[in-house]
Amino acid sequence: MQHNEGDSVSAALRRRIHEAIAAAGGWIAFDRFMAMALYEPGLGYYSRDSRKFGTLPSSGSDFVTAPELSPLFGRALARQVAQALTAADSGAVWEFGAGSGALAAQLLESLGEAVKRYTIVELSGSLRERQRERLAAFGDRVCWVETLPGTLDGVLIGNEVLDAMPVQLLLFDGQVWFERGVAAHGDSFIWADRPTSLRPPVDGAFVPGTVTEIHPQARAFVATLAERLQRGAAFFIDYGFPEAEYYLPARHGGTLMCHRAHRADADPLVLVGEKDITAHVNFTGIALAGQDAGLDVIGYTTQAHFLMNCGLLEMLRGADLRSTANAQKLLTEHEMGELFKVIGLARGIALDPIGFARGDRTHTL
């Protein structure tokens, strides 16, 4: 996309959001703003034809995910997927938000004929086309859908999907809670707060000025999957915390973050549609949403423990320096190893998942 085309798309998105604010009486909740900024058809960040994923800003990308960083991520994850497919007596894999298609390619290459059908649930038309190009070699084993069938079986995968689901923002002034939303100010957007009955899910010692997030859309997404999964397992990999850590007083600024050209900032009201907007995952909420809909929590651990349990260190034997350095970023505490977590949910199968064999933290949820 040429620069002026990007400018025109951004201007059109801002107009669309201004129209939504005016139609709603001058204020919209942040989750609606975030949904439009990211997913408005043809205009939102994930709907426009621009590169998102890559290792360096020189590629025109905004951030890197684990599959782009190292193919060993997908190879290690494939071991857990293979075990779950066997337990479910299924050849079906479902991936939600497949990004560049890198993880799908790694899983398909590693799993081979164990995968009879690889279904990608992708809302972005531009990303679907890039995935089709990348995965063409796998033929009709790969298909795309925008909506879910009534029932599912097999293995469900979501890598950095939950963090991109719209969140509601709450502000505590020391006495009462407000819902933080967005209003118009000339051609720009500003924060605007309204009293609310919404609360964080814990009764914490919140300091005055605290801004934090709640995650009804992520919980609803997991509940929907849980209601439809008849036999199989689901694994979600993302950055986040259990509830008791998420709402610590020290995290009084919340976790909302934007990403553009491999730089992070905390202001989603500027460069709307030109950068990613994310929030960390409350994994306790994800676990409860699954349990309430009938799933079992089969494990929760750090990405480092999960990948090592799945054999990543053995895969590194004999690897060159660059491959080793990239794979180490998946494991080290100050990179992705500790902040990123993996949660496993299942129904109708007997599974002792290898990914949680050591370092399981389910007791912290």
Rank of each mutant, 00 (worst) to 15 (best):
M1K: 08
N4Y: 14
R15Y: 00
I17E: 02
E19T: 14
I21Y: 03
A24L: 12
M34E: 05
L38V: 05
P41Y: 09
G42F: 08
Y45D: 02
R48P: 02
S50R: 13
F53Q: 10
G60E: 14
D62L: 06
V64F: 13
A66V: 03
L69E: 15
F73D: 03
V81C: 10
A87Y: 06
S90A: 15
G91D: 13
G91W: 01
A92E: 15
E95V: 11
G97E: 03
L107C: 07
V115Q: 04
V121D: 01
S124F: 03
R128D: 00
E129P: 00
E146S: 15
D153L: 02
G158M: 04
N159A: 09
L170T: 03
F172M: 07
W177M: 09
W177T: 05
A184D: 13
A184I: 01
H185Y: 00
F189T: 04
W191L: 11
R194T: 08
S197P: 00
A218F: 01
A218C: 07
F221V: 11
L225D: 02
G232A: 06
D238Q: 11
P242K: 06
A244V: 14
L248P: 07
A250P: 00
G253S: 13
G253N: 13
M257W: 00
K275Y: 08
T278C: 12
G285E: 04
G290K: 02
L295T: 04
L295I: 10
Y300R: 08
Y300C: 08
T301G: 14
Q303F: 05
A304T: 00
F306Y: 14
L307P: 07
E314H: 13
L321C: 01
A325I: 10
N326I: 00
N326M: 15
K329Y: 00
H334P: 00
M336C: 09
M336L: 15
I349S: 06
I349T: 08
P353N: 09
